[in-house]
Design a binder for these strands. Structure first.
Lengths: 188, 188
DNA sequence: ACAGAATGTCTAGCGGTGCTAGGATCGGCT
DNA sequence: AGCCGATCCTAGCACCGCTAGACATTCTGT
């Protein structure tokens, strides 16, 4: 039975190979350069192989996004734990969030802008997404009945800052100032 | 010279006809259904005619977005003026903003999500966009040195609420509650 | 009024997209 | 050894944004 096991392993490896290739291509040349042909060439397989692993291009983007949610959650967690005082946790998490969005624009786009197959707000939300959200929640006092609400609004504000400044609809500088303002107003 | 005038008028009419057709098609079937072929069929001209009016598809999306910015600014202005007391102005404007985003999702997408030819944050920002932003600024005390900053953060938060709830990344209900929270925290 | 210029519009097609059917090839099992 | 299923590729479909070049129409100057 070792043969079939090896095959399963190879399959899993190739699955990740495709996802990584898509992500690298997107990060270096943008998502509009990620076509099934170029992706196939990159992984040195023919196009149909992609479709034996994913239902379609959107599913590949989705897979990249899922990886991204995991990494974002980890970044936020590290930021929160690195804060010296609880009061500084929210600020640290906010800064980490915007740093993630600006340093990995293609990844962020896959997670929040591009059309994907991801089902949100369903019975089982993606654990990675939930984990990232929980990092925001944890920045607020457990006794605060509005901590979930606070987290939602803070997350929304950060997302808005990320995409509006990223597209130049608000000046990209002064982000630090906006974080300051947001944190001081939102912290309980 | 009336002949050339008539031609110019016909050209302008057809220009708007194309923009309106694109918008209607997007609002009924989504932007992925807006192709140059379908659009040409809709306005009962051949494809190349579109290119004699616009540089490309992105320019058509841009034209729709520009119309949208004008309408959004007007909605915000009406909301602000309809508020009985100055303290309620910000809340009214925020509610109007989210109503606009949820009632005209395709239009909102053209303005803030889709790739367009629009140049933001340049020397001459689109007046309609500036007008919308100014409605937010006007909700804050003129003596407040941070009123521009406040407006940027509020706008960002609203945009985040719009797209995150629209895509189900946060529960679409409870928007009213989030507005309440945002307004009470942000109002000076 | 009429020839020539200018303008407008269309048909046809280019290179690219996501995606898939069908056949060839390779591996493991009896 | 020979079969059989899994795996992979070639070729192609329908569609995309966009454009060259031919055709028709309208305007202009004599």
């Amino acid at each position: 039975m070792s043969a079939t096991e090896r095959r399963a392993r190879e399959r899993a490896d190739r699955h990740q190979l495709i996802v990584n290739a898509a992500r690298e291509l997107a990060e270096t040349e943008g998502w509009e350069a990620v076509t099934t042909r170029r992706l196939a060439e990159r992984v040195e397989y023919s196009q149909p192989v992609l479709y034996s692993h994913f239902n379609g291009k959107d599913a590949i983007v989705t897979a990249v996004a899922v990886d991204g949610f995991g990494e974002l959650a980890e970044q936020l967690r590290r930021a929160r734990h690195s804060a010296a005082k609880p009061k500084q946790a929210l600020r640290a998490v906010c800064r980490a969030y915007l740093r993630f969005a600006t340093e990995r624009p293609a990844l962020y786009q896959a997670m929040f802008v591009l059309p994907t197959d991801l089902q949100f707000a369903s019975e089982q939300t993606l654990p990675q997404l939930r984990a990232g959200f929980d990092e925001f929640v944890s920045c607020f006092d457990p006794g605060n009945e509005q901590r979930e609400l606070s987290a939602e609004v803070v997350w929304s504000a950060l997302h808005g800052l990320a995409v509006l400044s990223g597209s130049g609809r608000i000046p990209p500088e002064d982000q630090e100032q906006r974080i300051d303002f947001l944190v001081t107003r939102m912290a309980d």
